[in-house]
């Protein structure tokens, strides 16, 4: 996901422009001279300016070059980085119907496996970690974690 400054700067210009434009269309509030539009317009314009400067390459001399990260070719290639956010999406959708323990077990197993863990590590981890987290959050912190199809026995 290394993009050139031209691209990221351009994205910021567009984003800032959109923010300022949609901010300016917010309705005024009766009885107030300064409404909800002022702040987004200010921020949006700031982003447009910054984005333009970045795209033009001003200020790059200050940057510390990021160390080169060698890409790993194994299991799923470049899309691997999307596994964590995808699993969070999975948690959001699945934790109610499946229950916390099952959802968490799947999450832990997938991450461990994708990071190259052996089955001897990944399976016990997927069994133990959800139980410990459930104990800590459900019992100690009273967070209502969903039961789903596999309620915890405590």
């Amino acid at each position: 996901m290394q993009l050139s400054d031209r691209v990221t700067g351009g994205v910021l210009v567009v984003l800032g422009g959109l923010a300022a434009w949609s901010g300016s269309r917010l309705p005024a509030v009766p009885g107030q001279d300064v409404g909800p539009a002022a702040f987004p317009m200010l921020i949006g314009s700031g982003l447009v300016i910054c984005g333009a400067l970045i795209a033009l390459g001003i200020g790059r001399s200050f940057e510390v070059p990021e160390e080169d990260v060698p890409a790993t070719g194994s299991r799923f290639g470049g899309l691997r980085v999307l596994i964590p956010p995808a699993l969070l999406l999975f948690y959001m959708l699945a934790s109610e119907p499946l229950g916390f323990l099952l959802t968490a077990g799947i999450m832990v197993f997938v991450v461990a496996w994708a990071l190259g863990a052996s089955m001897r590590l990944a399976v016990p981890l997927a069994l133990v970690a959800p139980v410990l987290v459930h104990l800590a959050f459900y019992k100690l912190l009273r967070v209502p974690l969903p039961d789903g199809v596999l309620p915890a026995p405590w």
């Binding site: 969070l88 997938v110 981890l125 987290v133």
Partner: peptide, 15 residues
């Protein structure tokens, strides 16, 4: 090992 820490961190992030 990293493969045992990262899964737990992700789980803690969610919870």
């Amino acid at each position: 090992p990293r493969a045992s820490i990262m899964p737990v961190i992700l789980l803690l992030c969610a919870v």
